[in-house]
Nucleic acid binder design. Structure first.
Lengths: 125, 125
DNA sequence: CTGTATCCTTAGGGATACTG
DNA sequence: CAGTATCCCTAAGGATACAG
């Protein structure tokens, strides 16, 4: 089963950050609010890469930097993540849900389409 | 986050069995293919009940039997589960996907609606 | 910055026996 | 049948130091 991805808290968070959080570097993931250890993050990034969900490339400008990005396969996770987030928004008391989440609730498929378009743009740079 | 549910392999499997597998008793969950230990299953059933996802009732006929069922909140997980299953079907080589899964891929919202209707019927018995 | 390498602790979970 | 109760053990993960 695909539970390797869906059944894992940390993998889900990394994909979420990549998909909606605009985060792409090791450090950015680390600073994502939730406290993840460096070894754990490294292990998950490897696993996600092995599963073809993300890919890593060195930054063109700064050779020390590494950028992670969702692969074509990875971006297909959007509908699942969006559905999870909608569910969460409906069943937990969030003071004021961010704009993006309100839009998901109102127009799920529209937001998924946007996410895909944005990914294509970023990718073709 | 709702990761208490989504981030847990066993919880996901129980909900799946309840939603699509027609399983409702402790023993049926145990025999679900995946090998889950009795103590683990018991713990997850409690947790899911505490979270308002499932409810337990004694069988009307056989007092020794206990039936589990999705609550109103639990059934709202259908779109998420369906989306996960569709993703899985698309990215793993399953020899011959069961009918229900083929229907999900073809008509996601239709299947979700059916699941809900079926739940209502079962519930009003 | 992007990780490895260790160490150490704990929770999760398998196996099994047993109870109401 | 539907769980509890143990025991035991391993793998996951937190903390921290260090390296390329």
């Amino acid at each position: 089963m695909s539970l390797e991805i869906f059944g894992d808290r940390w993998s889900l968070l990394v994909v979420r950050d990549l998909m909606f959080g605009g985060r792409r570097t090791f450090k950015e993931f680390l600073d994502s609010g939730e406290k993840i250890a460096t070894n754990v993050l490294a292990e998950r990034l490897q696993r996600l890469e092995a599963n073809g969900i993300i890919e890593r490339r060195r930054d063109a400008d700064d050779a020390r930097k590494v950028n992670y990005a969702l692969t074509k396969k990875g971006i297909t996770l959007a509908p699942v993540l969006v559905e999870m987030i909608i569910w969460g928004a409906r069943h937990e008391e969030t003071a004021a849900p961010p704009e993006i989440i309100r839009r998901m609730v109102a127009d799920r498929d529209g937001v998924v389409a946007e996410i895909r378009d944005q990914w294509k743009k970023d990718r073709s740079l």
